[in-house]
Nucleic acid binder design. Structure first.
Lengths: 188, 188
DNA sequence: AATTGCATGTAAGGAGTTACATGATTAA
DNA sequence: TTAATCATGTAACTCCTTACATGCAATT
């Protein structure tokens, strides 16, 4: 079980930022690393159980005032396991890109189909860019994180920005090329 | 069945480039669109069966000289289904990025762990860049494809190049920042 | 009083990879 | 002759999302 899944490492990693409940781990994934990582409840809770059985996390029931919940923290063993993973080479297998597939097959159909997809991409990535730049500005003020954590968080945001910019640049280039094409080809 | 899977469209799309056997479809996926899409035998053969049952592809047994095989081609109905999909909006949900996760969690560990990951990324993406630029140069000579097909194929390669360049630029930026950090921080 | 958010889990099902199984043809 | 490639499929298994189920606490 869990031969290739990275969920265990995602959980251990989030817990190095501080003890958390399962619910808070999911929230952290969604709100902080959501633009490059996702984890669902359906994986987090069973995985926490397993991590506990392996001695990689510690459980503490919080029964005082407010809601009762189980707070997890990473053990020394858990930290070592996470560190081993951080040392491992990462496979850079390209992910499936649905837009590229559509643009590729667009060769056999009216140009409009491709330009619509490209325009939608420009719009979506421009919006994404706005969001990421907003976060980038706010990183310095996130005092819930340490200096190091802010630095590393900022770096991840930065890649998001550069890639989004590359996509926008690409889509505009393609739109320009396809516009030329249709002007030349459709009225002989 | 097949509620979210794009395999059916990938197959239909490849078949618009010409009639093919299931094996040849897999080969096409691997060799032509492999850097942004993947399909395995385990999905292609069952999906072809289903596409045939739906009347989206046509079967023709080739029993003449050479190996016997089944050649599939896309029907008019199949073309319409593919076109509908090309018109549909594409969700731009960011994929999981393992390197970013490692760099993010690297905040809690020796800087070396992050720099190793970043260096490996530079290396891998530089290599990828070399491959893609090679393909880009060859696109014009691929006479097995039409003018339009070469144009659209070239566009997909172009995004690969721009994104790989963005990643290399990013990783170098990060390496420079982390080098400064360790020079300032480790010897007070 | 009602809604939103916190909190924890399970179950079902889809998507996809990999391994297995089989065999023919072709090139080295 | 032996390895590689062509060719077709199935089975097992993992990963992951989504839906379901439940209930309390805080906010409006």
């Amino acid at each position: 079980m869990a031969k290739d899944s990275k969920t265990q490492f995602a959980i251990l990693g989030v817990l190095t930022f501080g003890p958390q409940s399962g619910y808070a781990i999911a929230k952290f994934c969604r709100e902080v690393v959501g633009f490059f990582w996702s984890e669902s409840f359906g994986r987090i809770y069973p995985q926490l159980k397993q991590l506990h059985a392996q001695g990689l996390v510690r459980k503490r029931d919080q029964t005082g005032s407010g809601r009762k919940k189980t707070i997890y923290s990473v053990t020394a063993k858990g930290r070592r396991v996470l560190e081993e993973w951080l040392k491992e080479p990462t496979s850079h297998q390209p992910a499936r890109n649905e837009t590229l597939l559509k643009v590729f097959f667009g060769a056999e159909f009216p140009t409009e189909l491709s330009t619509n997809q490209l325009s939608a991409l420009v719009e979506a990535q421009t919006e994404m860019l706005k969001v990421l730049k907003g976060i980038e500005q706010q990183v310095e003020t996130m005092t819930e994180f340490s200096e190091q954590q802010r630095l590393h968080f900022g770096m991840t945001i930065r890649l998001g920005i550069l890639v989004a910019q590359a996509r926008v640049k690409w889509a505009r280039e393609c739109l320009a090329i396809l516009k030329l094409e249709s002007n030349n080809g459709n009225t002989p």
